[in-house]
Structures are given as C-alpha cells and as structure tokens.
C-alpha cells in the first residue's frame, strides 16, 4: 500500500497495565481457523492475528480500540448506558447480568472519541462477546448519541460493526433502533461529515440492514460473515447448496457492497489515510 501520510503504523506497541496483565495472564484462547491455543495476552500483543495460520481471533471492543486509537487519547462516552428490560422479557435480565459479568461490558457497543494517527474521530466498536453484539435499545441509544456528539464536535464517525442483528428480547424497542440509527446517520451526513463503516465477523440482520451499510465508505475484514438472513434460514427456504464464500466479505465485495477488504494489520493505516483524504489538515502523529 502506498503511504501517503507519513510513516507506517507499528502495531502492538501500546503497553498493557500490569494489573490487567496479571489478571488475564493465564487465560487461553483458541484460533478459530487452525484451532491452536494461545495466551490471550500474547494474542492481544500480536494484534489478534494468529501467528500460525494468519486467522483472526474474535476481538473485544477494548482490544480493537487499543489497536486503532493512539495511546492515551481515548475518552469513552456514555459508559454508564446499559440495557434494561423494556418488555419484561422472561430470563432476559439474568442473561444480561451473565453477559455483563463475562464480558465486563454494560452493553454490546463501546463508544468514544480519540485520535487515529492524530486525526480526532468519534469511534463506536461493537463487541460480539456481549450477547452476540445484538442491538438493543441501549446499543442503539449509544450509537445515536455518538453520531450526535460527532455532529456537535464536527467529527468523522467510524463504526466497527459486529452483530447478530436486532436483540429479540427487546422486541420493537430493538427493531426501532434500525430506524433511529438511520436518522442519526442521515443527520450527521447532512452536515457534510464523514462516516466509515467497518464490517467485522459477524455482521448480520438488522445491523447490516441499517447503519452498517450506510457508510460513505464501507470496509470489511477478510473472511467476515456479512449478510442479512441467517445461512440456515436461507438453506431451509431455497433448499440449494450455497456457494463457499456466501455472505463473506469477499462475496459482498464481489457484489459491490464493500469498498475494500482490509486486513486487520492494515486497518489503522487505511482508516488514517481515509481520514486524511477527507481532512488533509489533520496533524500527523506517530
């Protein structure tokens, strides 16, 4: 890739606080491609790309933010916003509690503002570890507020998407977030501001059918599942074999729905380049 705007980003240079390191130091994660197990901490430091097969580990929102945002520049927004149980749906409260505990997140998206190689950006990262990244009312609310914040501050928005779709336990409260986020994207766009959507594994259902596909520029990670309906539903409906790359990033690219497929290692460089192409005055910072 031609580097238009300064030196190449060196990956994995952000230090990890000691406490955090100790706490997670023995946790192992398995590569979804080759099945080899590695220490989570090692995986984190090598950018969540498997050293054996180049497969991608599922990333947490925090790891993604660490990878994309310049050190010590991230300010989280709406940290406290968390899902409620608007329909009083059976077992939903317990499920939420469990996922909160397991993921350490109050909701399926982390939003905030930070610098990407010196370019100030509003960033939202969905986390598939929290209820499959499904979109409930609080998820939608955080995304809407992120776009509103970006409008006020005149900032570009980057959404890193990963979601199983609208969260069914919140019924219409979840479905309506497709409409609400669309309105938020439109208001941001009307101000002439840039929105880049990054599709990661998996991006499906109501999230694909709303803000994920509304970016001025849409990027995708290689091999990510990106689609509308679930593969099983489609197989039951059409009763035919689906092509191997069906609903993969590459399939979306071939069919014209994605601007570029960007390897994880180059994502920050690509984003910073696109940000600079829209705002050449952005200060270059290493």
């Amino acid at each position: 890739m031609i580097n238009l705007f300064g030196k190449k980003e060196k990956p994995g240079k952000s230090p990890i606080p000691l406490g955090e390191f100790k706490e997670h130091s023995l946790e192992m994660v398995r590569c979804p491609e080759c099945g080899k197990s590695l220490l989570r901490e090692v995986v984190r430091r090598i950018g969540s790309v498997c050293p054996f097969c180049s497969g991608y580990f599922r990333m947490t929102a925090r790891d993604r933010i660490r990878q994309l945002i310049d050190e010590d520049t991230f300010l989280e927004l709406d940290e406290e916003t968390a899902a409620r149980n608007p329909l009083d749906f059976p077992d939903y409260r317990d499920r939420l509690m469990r996922h909160r505990e397991q993921s350490g997140l109050p909701e399926a998206v982390v939003t905030g503002v930070g610098d990407i190689s010196g370019c100030r950006t509003a960033l939202g990262v969905m986390d598939s570890h929290f209820m499959m990244g499904s979109m409930g009312s609080a998820t939608g609310e955080k995304i809407v507020r992120l776009f509103d914040y970006a409008c006020e501050q005149r900032l570009p928005v980057i959404m890193v998407c990963a979601s199983g779709g609208a969260r069914m336990q919140e019924g219409m409260f979840a479905l309506s977030q497709m409409a609400r986020t669309s309105v938020a994207v439109s208001r941001h766009s009307r101000q002439g501001l840039l929105y880049i959507s990054v599709l990661t594994h998996p991006t499906t259902g109501g999230v694909t059918a709303s803000f994920a596909m509304q970016g001025d520029i849409i990027l995708a990670e290689p091999g990510a599942l990106v689609g509308f309906a679930g593969k099983r539903v489609i197989e039951q409906t059409v009763r035919e074999e689906l092509p191997e790359n069906f609903q993969k990033s590459e399939f979306q690219f071939d069919n014209g729905f994605v601007d570029a497929i960007v390897p994880r290692e180059s994502l920050k460089a690509m984003l910073s380049r696109l940000l600079r192409l829209h705002d050449p005055s952005c200060a270059v910072r290493e």
């Binding site: 669309s182 009307r190 994920a212 596909m213 509308f228 409906t237």
Partner: peptide, 26 residues
C-alpha cells in the same frame, strides 16, 4: 419479512433496507 434467499443476499437485501431507512429519514 424480506425474502431470505441466495439471490436476495447477492443483490444486497440488507443494503437496500438500510438505504430505504436512510431515504425515509430525510
């Protein structure tokens, strides 16, 4: 619901719904 089929996915079922929502927003 929107048709869940191979051709529908290929022609961007999600993308057209996203576009329709965006269009109606404004």
């Amino acid at each position: 619901g929107a048709y869940p089929g191979r051709e529908a996915e290929q022609r961007g079922q999600a993308a057209v719904i996203a576009e329709s929502l965006y269009l109606l927003s404004e």
